[in-house]
């Protein structure tokens, strides 16, 4: 049974997305992408993904909007009016229909017996629950480790998986942020370096470039 608030949030999200698509004022559209992220964070909370909601609210509504606004201040504030073309609608319609056809085989939303909840996820939850709750009772006794089952023993299972079970993954993610920042610096920081060069050299550089 769908909660009314889910329907309301989805309607808000769809409206915001359509308005973003139609707006020609890019500043307003940038603010609306922030609102879009905030609304989706609300939906993530209903779907029990509190960590994802937290991240989406902080990233989408905070930092990403600031970055887009910074870019807009350097480029155009408005986009040109353009005629509505029919081809994109056809492409999008066909893609959407194919995707919806693909969902027909999926388990219903919230189905406890769905395939993704078995295997590894069930194991993670089982191990962590046992480890954390047994830790509670006898703090001195090391939890679970004698039995050969490794456990983290933290209440937040998402953090346990993120930082310990899938530590490699998170290491890669940190490396991605690092690489992307290096890329941004390489793309945008040339001016500052030129400023440091002494005046005659700089003139030379400007004429040669």
């Amino acid at each position: 049974m769908p909660l009314p608030i889910e329907i309301v949030l989805f309607i808000f999200l769809l409206t915001t997305a359509v308005v973003i698509a139609r707006l020609e004022d890019l500043f307003a559209a940038a603010m609306l992408t922030g609102i879009f992220s905030l609304l989706s964070a609300g939906l993530f909370t209903i779907m029990d993904a509190v960590d994802v909601a937290f991240t989406e609210a902080a990233v989408g509504a905070g930092v990403a909007t600031v970055f887009i606004l910074c870019t807009l201040s350097l480029t155009a504030k408005r986009e040109y009016q353009q005629p509505t073309r029919i081809l994109p609608f056809i492409v999008v319609g066909i893609t959407g229909a194919a995707l919806i056809y693909g969902t027909l085989d999926m388990p219903a939303y919230g189905d406890p017996d769905a395939v993704p909840h078995g295997h590894l996820s069930a194991k993670f939850i089982e191990i962590e629950e046992k480890a954390f709750l047994s830790q509670d009772k006898h703090a001195a006794e090391p939890a679970q480790h004698g039995s050969g089952e490794k456990a983290v023993g933290l209440p937040n299972i998402v953090t346990s998986i993120l930082a310990s079970y899938r530590g490699y993954d998170t290491f890669g993610e940190t490396a991605v942020i690092f690489t992307a920042t290096i890329g941004v610096m390489l793309l945008l920081r040339t001016r500052r370096r030129e400023k440091k060069v002494s005046p005659p050299n700089r003139d030379q550089m400007e004429t040669t470039s």
């Binding site: 970055f67 910074c70 350097l74 941004v184 920081r189 001016r191």
Partner: peptide, 10 residues
């Protein structure tokens, strides 16, 4: 740093 790069450009 990304904010510095984007805002410093302007």
């Amino acid at each position: 740093t990304i904010f510095y790069a984007l805002a410093g450009r302007g």
